[in-house]
């Protein structure tokens, strides 16, 4: 991920240069899209959520104070937007009798894996995606940022505005829960 000179880009934006925001979108679009896709467990709707993230960022960028970097600030907006989206979807699914998390899993290879392929990467990845969908929002946020986005403990702590100790314990709990959930999926 290409990181930008936050101070310079903010100054340009505050002076009315809209191309400055376009540069922000170009630099972070892939990371934000990837994060949204794994957070909501639905790559099809991830674009709408990621669009919403950048729209919120645009509306609030003038008020942004550079005590954090733009990308951790964007991750924070993305995590909150994904949580809101999931709430909305689960609220709607109450009426539609649908389990959204399991929609994308349906596309994964199914059937009982043989003992030889028990740790086969495809099956493991499918079970992992499924397990990820069952994880609580708090644990999912930290594990996605750590394992999928490759953020450091410090960056996750900055993004979620929690202590590094909390980040470490949440990551550890997330791994333990994922391991147990994956066992439940016969892997």
């Amino acid at each position: 991920m290409k990181k930008l000179d936050d101070t310079a880009i903010l100054l340009r934006f505050k002076n009315g240069d809209t191309s400055a925001f376009q540069e922000i979108v170009l630099a972070y679009q892939d990371s934000i899209f990837n994060l949204c896709a794994y957070m909501i467990g639905d790559p099809v709707n991830a674009e709408d959520v990621a669009q919403d993230v950048f729209l919120k960022a645009y509306q609030n960028l003038k008020a942004f104070k550079p005590n954090a970097s733009i990308y951790t600030w964007l991750y924070r907006i993305a995590i909150n937007t994904c949580i809101d989206y999931k709430r909305k979807v689960s609220f709607e699914s109450v009426f539609k009798h649908q389990q959204h998390d399991e929609d994308i899993i349906a596309n994964e290879p199914s059937g009982d894996p043989s003992p030889e392929s028990i740790y086969g990467s495809k099956q493991t990845a499918a079970a992992l995606k499924k397990a990820l969908g069952k994880l609580s929002r708090k644990l999912k946020s930290v594990i996605v940022m750590k394992e999928i986005e490759g953020l450091s403990y410090e960056e996750i702590a900055d993004t979620l505005e929690i202590s590094i100790g909390t980040v470490k314990s949440r990551i550890s709990r997330a791994r333990e829960e994922l391991k147990e959930l994956m066992k439940g999926f016969n892997l």
Partner: peptide
């Protein structure tokens, strides 16, 4: 470790083509 490796092997999804243009048009 198996789980960690599975995470590492997960596909990295990039924003679809024209994403930035659509964001700016939306704004």
């Amino acid at each position: 470790k198996v789980m960690h490796n599975a995470f590492c092997s997960m596909e990295r999804l990039n924003a679809p083509y024209g994403f930035t243009t659509r964001v700016m048009a939306n704004i």
